[in-house]
Computed example of a mutant assay.
Amino acid sequence: MARLNAVSHHPLVAIGRISAANLPATLQTGVAVISMILASPDITATVKAMRAAYQSK
């Protein structure tokens, strides 16, 4: 994703397989994360965890 983002002039969206384990690396690429939020049983907690991971990068 990082290589694609570096050469693309368009926003990238991660469609699947984003999890808490690979979230920090995903956030570094600058892509949008959708499925991790929508598949979560606790969307509020997931978004808070994502925000914390983003702010700590």
Rank of each mutant, 00 (worst) to 15 (best):
residue 43 I to D: 06
residue 57 K to T: 14
residue 29 T to Q: 02
residue 8 S to V: 06
residue 36 M to G: 11
residue 3 R to P: 15
residue 43 I to L: 09
residue 21 A to E: 15
residue 46 T to H: 00
residue 7 V to Q: 10
residue 29 T to E: 04
residue 5 N to H: 13
residue 55 Q to D: 05
residue 51 R to G: 03
residue 33 V to D: 08
residue 26 T to W: 06
residue 45 A to C: 05
residue 43 I to F: 12
residue 5 N to F: 09
residue 22 N to Y: 02
residue 6 A to G: 11
residue 47 V to Q: 01
residue 12 L to M: 01
residue 52 A to W: 05
residue 5 N to C: 15
residue 38 L to R: 09
residue 3 R to W: 12
residue 37 I to H: 15
residue 47 V to G: 01
residue 30 G to D: 10
residue 34 I to N: 12
residue 12 L to F: 08
residue 1 M to F: 11
residue 39 A to S: 13
residue 52 A to F: 06
residue 5 N to D: 12
residue 10 H to Y: 13
residue 13 V to R: 02
residue 18 I to T: 02
residue 13 V to M: 06
residue 37 I to E: 05
residue 25 A to N: 06
residue 32 A to M: 10
residue 50 M to T: 03
residue 19 S to D: 07
residue 7 V to P: 08
residue 27 L to T: 00
residue 39 A to D: 14
residue 42 D to H: 03
residue 38 L to K: 13
residue 24 P to G: 05
residue 26 T to L: 07
residue 4 L to R: 13
residue 10 H to C: 08
residue 47 V to M: 03
residue 32 A to E: 06
residue 55 Q to A: 10
residue 56 S to E: 03
residue 39 A to N: 09
residue 37 I to R: 02
residue 30 G to A: 11
residue 13 V to I: 03
residue 17 R to M: 11
residue 14 A to R: 04
residue 56 S to Q: 09
residue 23 L to Q: 01
residue 26 T to E: 11
residue 18 I to R: 00
residue 51 R to I: 11
residue 54 Y to H: 02
residue 47 V to D: 01
residue 19 S to T: 07
residue 40 S to T: 02
residue 37 I to L: 07
residue 22 N to G: 02
residue 50 M to Y: 03
residue 41 P to W: 05
residue 37 I to C: 09
residue 1 M to Y: 10
residue 7 V to R: 12
residue 26 T to K: 09
residue 20 A to K: 10
residue 5 N to E: 13
residue 11 P to Y: 01
residue 32 A to Y: 08
residue 20 A to V: 09
residue 40 S to P: 02
residue 48 K to P: 08
residue 36 M to K: 12
residue 29 T to A: 07
residue 35 S to V: 01
residue 39 A to T: 04
residue 13 V to N: 04
residue 56 S to D: 05
residue 32 A to R: 09
residue 30 G to S: 10
residue 5 N to S: 12
residue 5 N to Y: 09
residue 24 P to E: 09
residue 1 M to W: 09
residue 10 H to N: 14
residue 36 M to H: 15
residue 42 D to N: 04
residue 9 H to A: 15
residue 6 A to L: 10
residue 32 A to C: 06
residue 40 S to D: 00
residue 17 R to G: 07
residue 21 A to F: 10
residue 28 Q to S: 08
residue 36 M to D: 13
residue 10 H to T: 14
residue 9 H to I: 07
residue 27 L to H: 02
residue 57 K to R: 13
residue 30 G to R: 04
residue 46 T to P: 00
residue 50 M to H: 02
residue 8 S to A: 11
residue 37 I to K: 05
residue 3 R to M: 14
residue 51 R to D: 12
residue 41 P to V: 03
residue 54 Y to V: 05
residue 25 A to D: 14
residue 46 T to E: 00
residue 31 V to T: 11
residue 37 I to D: 09
residue 53 A to Q: 03
residue 8 S to T: 08
residue 27 L to R: 00
residue 41 P to D: 13
residue 24 P to D: 08
residue 15 I to D: 10
residue 16 G to T: 08
residue 43 I to A: 12
residue 11 P to L: 02
residue 8 S to M: 13
residue 17 R to N: 14
residue 20 A to Q: 08
residue 5 N to Q: 15
residue 18 I to E: 00
residue 48 K to Q: 15
residue 27 L to S: 00
